[in-house]
Design a protein around this nucleic acid. Structure first.
Lengths: 177, 177
DNA sequence: ACCGTATGAATGAATG
DNA sequence: CATTCATTCATACGGT
């Protein structure tokens, strides 16, 4: 049971009266991730898992479901878009740096992660990170939110689950239970 | 020089104090295109190039830069929004016509171009028009502004660059130097 | 001063 | 993965 999969429409009380008054019907809602959900997604992404496999996606979805209806598709799309846009932003940033070398050192937020080159997890699979998807309480949000300084970037060496042997480099590396 | 890329905020003095007082961060100002920039964009759009490729976008940006700071992103967004809204307005118009057949004949301005169906330039590329992006003086603004009777629509047969062989149909066809 | 509209920006959802 | 479309959020601006 459970509709689990598939893109979820935030079905809650949604009604829509078109600006002119004509009833446009229930209309389709698109998933609007809750703040907590975004935090989680963002944290996972920054932790290095930029391209979750199918079942990882499912796990993530289950996690997110605690905070509101969500489908695998939503999670899938989210990562896809995140990757895409992250890459694009990075390109832009690079371009602007080349065009205008001054203004460097301000390694601020602009793009998220997605370490460009490094063979890391690039192509297909993903879980390059030592993430250990939990499936429990909601307290971790604290550690999560801490770990990404107010959304986007900033790596805090939290780590757990002992040492991951080959530390893979950049990404935040995080995680929990 | 100039940082060229990236969405430009019209800088000037901007500060932000959230309504409740908590500082929500500096927040970025949004690009407010100068009249001349709009003229150019509009003219290009009406000329049929409704969906510039990446490098076309860059060229356009460089053009616009003459009149004020602008980034590729701004140009990109501009065309996207323009296309989208043009299409939407057209749809609405159609709908209202269906709903209320009387009131026709007023084939006035409402949307810009983007001829819906026709295979024209639809799908991928774009430069369906015989536009020949220049990269020079600012006088052309005259011909441009003439060519679109007071913004939006109205095609004036200005053309240049001899004949483009296969005239492609609708759009204003314009252009300059 | 407020409010409504136009529109720049962001992002979820596809499609190739 | 790249592009594109649709929808929505945020705000600059004009009218009253």
């Amino acid at each position: 049971m459970e509709d689990s999969n598939r893109g979820h429409g935030n079905s809650s009380s949604l009604q829509r009266s078109a600006p002119d008054g004509t009833v446009t019907g229930p209309m389709r809602t698109r998933w609007t991730p809750k703040a907590e959900q975004i935090l989680i997604l963002e944290s996972i992404f920054n932790s290095g898992m930029v391209n979750p496999t199918k079942d990882e996606t499912a796990r993530i979805r289950r996690l997110l479901e605690r905070f509101g209806p969500v489908g695998d598709a939503n999670v899938f799309y989210w990562f896809q878009n995140r990757r895409s846009r992250s890459r694009r932003r990075q390109r832009q940033l690079q371009a602007s740096l080349v065009a205008d070398p001054r203004a460097a050192g301000v390694a601020q937020q602009v793009g998220g992660g997605v370490q460009s080159s490094s063979a890391a997890s690039s192509s297909s699979s993903s879980s390059a990170a030592n993430v250990m998807l939990m499936d429990d309480s909601a307290q971790y949000l604290f550690s999560i939110s801490r770990q990404m300084g107010l959304m986007e970037n900033t790596q805090s060496p939290v780590v757990r689950s002992s040492d991951v042997s080959q530390l893979h480099s950049q990404p935040g590396t995080v995680i929990v239970f």
